[in-house]
Amino acid sequence: MTELIIFAALISLGFFVGQYLEKRHYASIQMREKQLINLVTTTSKTPVGDVGEISHCTLVSGNAVISIDYFKRIVAGLRAIFGGTVRSYETLIDRSRREAILRLKESCPEAAQIINLRIETSSVFKGKKNDVGSVEVLAYGTAVYIK
């Protein structure tokens, strides 16, 4: 009985607090994406367009480790029985990637362009049961500065 109460408490805590935190995070991501929209970030290997004389360039990176909440973990576990789209993990990975790219941009606001952007995803510090609880996303690229 006690176990059931703890389980129900964890699920509802995960559902309500997790949902609130995710909404807040998405709001912050969207706001910052708007602010940084002028910093061109491409996967091209050379600067795009006419940038003028280049003064220097340097490697920049941004990373984020984001964890899933308890409710979504249970839902994803149930999903594994029937198969299909696992929405709970989609949002987890989506916001980790966007957060990592934002941090990359925030680390070099003076740059003219960021080229050759690469994104790498890995599940870090796996738990005992081999479950994907949290993902790490690393975004890196070359920041080009002009004179």
Binding site: V65, S67, D69
Partner: peptide, 12 residues
């Protein structure tokens, strides 16, 4: 943090 989800700043 695993219960409510969100960023794990220590790991980052």
């Amino acid at each position: 943090k695993n219960i409510v989800g969100g960023e794990l700043k220590g790991y980052t």
